[in-house]
């Protein structure tokens, strides 16, 4: 699903966030990305979603070299990816339902299908009863689940999550991770950046550990890439 080939990222300020990262996430696989803050986890996810462009190296997503994706095409690229953030990035002036419906409206899904699909997504994250509420009325864990429902509502083949449990207590964190695992079981590829090592260890999925922009542990390394 995702391939990184010797990817470097240097920000305009001179900070080198990634120094030659290579790995491959097979289709339908779920993996964790760990490392201290500043190790380059967020940068790596941003490169996949084309929020940043790599300085060097190649990134292949769904058999497409994303260096060739032109700026105009970036929105369509992002529709293949469901993104989840630590701070949820919900629109606080809209109801839960409207937040989840947003990707469908943007993609041009017909009016007829939207309610069905929104409710299906809300059902999966167990928030069906709260569709009329505003995000501010929900708990942190519920807000994160709204974020997940929004990420999966248009059924993207890939989910990226950046510290999805960063603000949650351990029990809720485990619920959220299990939720990702369920999506993975139906064929969605999942890459989760997290520093919750205990939780990651229990999940038994491949791990890539980053330190100062380099992989120090890479359970998805492929021999070909070296």
């Amino acid at each position: 699903m995702i391939e990184f080939h010797q990817v470097f990222k240097r920000y305009s300020g001179g900070h080198e966030a990634l120094k030659g990262v290579s790995f491959g996430l097979p289709r339908g696989e779920m993996a964790f990305l760990t490392g201290h803050s500043g190790a380059g986890k967020s940068t790596l996810l941003k490169l996949i979603a084309l929020m940043e462009r790599p300085t060097r190296g190649q990134i292949i997503l769904d058999d497409i070299n994303i260096s060739n994706v032109k700026d105009r095409q970036v929105p369509y690229h992002r529709r293949k990816i469901g993104m989840i953030f630590q701070d949820h990035r919900l629109l606080f002036d809209r109801t839960v339902y409207d937040n989840v419906a947003l990707p469908l409206i943007i993609a041009g899904v017909s009016d007829r299908d939207i309610p069905k699909r929104v409710r299906a997504a809300l059902d999966k994250v167990d928030l069906l009863t709260k569709e009329r509420q505003l995000p501010i009325q929900l708990s942190g864990g519920e807000q994160q689940r709204v974020g997940i429902a929004r990420a999966v509502v248009n059924k993207p083949p890939l989910l990226l999550a950046d510290e999805p449990t960063g603000n949650l207590d351990p029990e809720l964190s485990e619920d959220i991770m299990n939720l990702f695992a369920q999506f993975n079981q139906v064929g969605v590829s999942v890459l989760i950046a997290s520093h919750d090592l205990g939780l990651i260890a229990r999940m038994k999925h491949p791990v890539i550990a980053l330190k100062e922009g380099r992989t120090i542990r890479n359970e998805l390394a492929e021999v070909d890439f070296a």
Binding site: R79, K80, A107, G108, V109, A120, D123, K124, V125, D126, N154, K155, P156, P157, D175, N178, L179, Q182, F183, Q185, V186, G187, V188
Partner: peptide, 18 residues
Amino acid sequence: MSNHKVSSKKSSATSYKV
């Protein structure tokens, strides 16, 4: 969270195209 229903149909898992 045991009642989370996730569709088991593989074909419908990804359909971002409209």
